[in-house]
Computed example of a mutant assay.
Amino acid sequence: MKALKPTVSIEYCPKCGWMLRAAYMAQELLSTFTDEITGVLLMPAEVGGAYVICIDGVVIFDRKEKGRFPEIKELKQLVRDIVSPEKRLGHSDKLV
């Protein structure tokens, strides 16, 4: 039986106007990890100021904890390290 692909979720504060940012990040992740993830779930938060990114319920980035939003390059690296560590990200890869 084939293992289920992970799902990325982005919980964002709709009152802060962060839906477009979440949709942009979802688009970037979907285009980069087409074969590695099931999809990206956008979830309006009930808590003001929330912007939390998870993979299968495990937090990989929390704006309140970090005090900032993730850069798209950084986010792709965080997702890659969990869902497909061997995947090369081209120009978004870490410098060795």
Results as ranks from 00 to 15, higher is better:
residue 27 Q to V: 01
residue 29 L to G: 01
residue 19 M to F: 01
residue 21 R to K: 15
residue 27 Q to A: 09
residue 22 A to W: 10
residue 21 R to D: 02
residue 39 G to N: 03
residue 29 L to H: 09
residue 46 E to Q: 12
residue 37 I to F: 03
residue 32 T to S: 05
residue 36 E to Q: 14
residue 18 W to V: 14
residue 49 G to T: 08
residue 17 G to F: 07
residue 32 T to I: 03
residue 34 T to H: 10
residue 37 I to L: 01
residue 22 A to N: 11
residue 36 E to P: 00
residue 50 A to R: 15
residue 47 V to M: 05
residue 22 A to D: 05
residue 31 S to C: 03
residue 35 D to I: 00
residue 37 I to T: 07
residue 48 G to S: 13
residue 25 M to Q: 12
residue 43 M to R: 15
residue 50 A to M: 13
residue 27 Q to Y: 04
residue 35 D to T: 14
residue 33 F to Q: 05
residue 30 L to C: 09
residue 28 E to I: 10
residue 19 M to C: 02
residue 37 I to E: 02
residue 17 G to W: 02
residue 21 R to F: 03
residue 43 M to D: 01
residue 31 S to D: 08
residue 17 G to V: 07
residue 30 L to P: 02
residue 40 V to A: 06
residue 18 W to Y: 12
residue 41 L to I: 06
residue 43 M to V: 10
residue 50 A to Q: 12
residue 48 G to V: 11
residue 38 T to V: 06
residue 27 Q to N: 08
residue 38 T to W: 00
residue 25 M to V: 06
residue 47 V to L: 12
residue 17 G to C: 00
residue 17 G to A: 01
residue 22 A to L: 05
residue 38 T to E: 14
residue 42 L to A: 04
residue 25 M to G: 03
residue 22 A to R: 09
residue 50 A to V: 12
residue 47 V to F: 12
residue 26 A to N: 00
residue 48 G to Q: 15
residue 19 M to G: 04
residue 18 W to F: 14
residue 25 M to P: 02
residue 43 M to C: 09
residue 34 T to E: 13
residue 38 T to F: 06
residue 23 A to D: 03
residue 22 A to P: 04
residue 35 D to E: 11
residue 29 L to K: 06
residue 17 G to P: 01
residue 49 G to P: 10
residue 38 T to D: 07
residue 19 M to H: 15
residue 43 M to Q: 13
residue 43 M to H: 09
residue 18 W to S: 02
residue 25 M to A: 10
residue 44 P to W: 11
residue 35 D to C: 04
residue 29 L to Q: 06
residue 23 A to H: 13
residue 31 S to N: 10
residue 18 W to I: 08
residue 40 V to H: 01
residue 36 E to C: 00
residue 49 G to Y: 13
residue 34 T to D: 09
residue 34 T to V: 05
residue 38 T to A: 06
residue 33 F to E: 02
residue 46 E to F: 11
residue 20 L to Q: 15
residue 32 T to Y: 00
residue 24 Y to I: 02
residue 48 G to R: 14
residue 50 A to L: 07
residue 42 L to F: 04
residue 26 A to H: 03
residue 37 I to S: 00
residue 41 L to S: 12
residue 35 D to M: 10
residue 46 E to C: 01
residue 17 G to N: 09
residue 36 E to N: 13
residue 29 L to W: 02
residue 17 G to T: 12
residue 48 G to M: 11
residue 23 A to G: 01
residue 37 I to N: 02
residue 50 A to T: 15
residue 45 A to T: 08
residue 33 F to D: 04
residue 26 A to I: 05
residue 27 Q to R: 08
residue 50 A to D: 10
residue 35 D to F: 09
residue 42 L to S: 04
residue 41 L to N: 15
residue 30 L to R: 11
residue 19 M to V: 04
residue 32 T to Q: 11
residue 28 E to Y: 03
residue 23 A to W: 08
residue 26 A to S: 07
residue 37 I to Y: 02
residue 33 F to S: 04
residue 31 S to K: 11
residue 26 A to T: 00
residue 19 M to I: 13
residue 29 L to M: 14
residue 48 G to H: 10
residue 48 G to D: 07
residue 22 A to Q: 07
residue 34 T to N: 07
residue 50 A to S: 14
residue 24 Y to D: 04
residue 42 L to V: 14
